[in-house]
Design a protein around this nucleic acid. Structure first.
Lengths: 209, 209
DNA sequence: CACTTAATGTGACATTTGTTACAGACGCTC
DNA sequence: GAGCGTCTGTAACAAATGTCACATTAAGTG
């Protein structure tokens, strides 16, 4: 069995028999940073479990504007994919690789079966839902209750937390896209954060202090 | 069996045996418009199924600011309650009666059991999750991609849709609270909508045209 | 009807965010 | 180091939203 998969399954406290099923039926997928894993147009019938690396979930409107929702870290799975697949619905979000990532792709056709059969899988799925709900509500909080400067700083802190590095390799333009604002605004506010000694700026790189 | 419950259970296409269990184990609860059904501090172990009337789900931040997320109509249930109860977590939202409502309160302790036992209940629960995810994403869209005038109009249309009436009995102040803005802003924008012949205004009452 | 209270209207101004235009800085390649 | 493309900084202005003050209006009550 793939080593990282073994580790993730153990941490998830899944039933051993179920772990074997998942390991048997799934397949490994490696994705490069920046590549799209799930998009509104894709109709993949697999759900990704993150073994290593970092995914990010974005919401996209019909005009191509987008906004960052949350990260998916090692051991986590995309709860929204589960219901989409079960319901055969169009996905209303986009999942991208924020860093190079290793995924375990599990075909959907066994999900209902496992939910019925394994208490540990029910817990796994409900955990995933709960965590994602929390993340979505958190995203709503940021957007509704915070001004752009706080939202930006929160974004930087989240990114630091998720990547485990205080160095962020992004351009102002990229950050602006994730917050659905403009590059000039981001530059302005980052300059402010720099003056407050909360960050340090370099080309293509921001350090959180 | 309660008549409205009977109807809702039938529409949900639940297994007859399960319907009987739900009808047996639950209890009827009537709530007055404006009253709080679930709040972050409540630790109720029941989930509500809306038999009649209209509930609304709000997000509240620590400073007491709040924002409207979505309505729960007849036949719908609060998916977030399910996971909260299963996980024993603190609720991160508030559910209020938008109109007088009749609820069927189902104790949580049977949920896991039902999920294991009934395929139709799994479908019911996953449907609920999917619908709620969609509603949350929809709420995010409004807040991220729309300006306040569009957001306000969308809110009015949603309310019209959910209540089934083109007349909305709310003050500008109340609307402002649900959109997390100020009364003056709402008055200004409503006046605009009136000039565009999209609404007609009276004291405590707005008519959608 | 006169009075009271809550709801709404509106002007004036502050703050935040968005937009445009352009200048300067950095890193890369030849 | 000259040339090039991208990234960042910044001024100037526009638009959206928030805030304060106060006027006006509508509905209910005695």
């Amino acid at each position: 069995m793939h080593e990282a998969l073994q580790k993730v399954l153990n941490n998830s406290q899944l039933d051993p028999a179920l772990s074997i099923e998942i390991a048997t039926i799934g397949r490994l997928k490696k994705v490069k940073a920046g590549s799209v894993v799930i998009s509104p147009v894709s109709d993949s019938m697999e759900i990704p479990i993150v073994l290593d690396g970092l995914l990010k979930v974005m919401r996209e409107d019909t005009n191509g504007n987008e906004v960052f929702l949350y990260f998916l870290e090692g051991g986590e799975t995309c709860a929204m994919s589960i219901t989409c697949c079960i319901e055969g619905r169009k996905k209303a979000f986009k999942v991208m690789a924020e860093e190079d990532a290793v995924l375990w792709m599990v075909p959907m056709n066994q999900i209902d079966n496992w939910v019925a059969k394994y208490q540990s899988f029910r817990k796994f799925v409900f955990d995933a839902y709960q965590t994602r709900f929390d993340e979505l509500l958190n995203a709503i909080d940021s957007v509704v209750f915070l001004k752009m400067d706080q939202r930006l700083y929160k974004y930087l802190l989240d990114k630091k937390q998720a990547s485990g590095s205080y160095v962020i390799h992004k351009t102002h333009e990229q950050i602006a896209n994730e917050l659905n604002t403009s590059r000039v605004v981001v530059s302005r506010l980052l300059k402010q954060l720099e003056h407050e000694d909360k960050i340090e700026q370099h080309r293509n790189r921001i350090e959180i202090l």
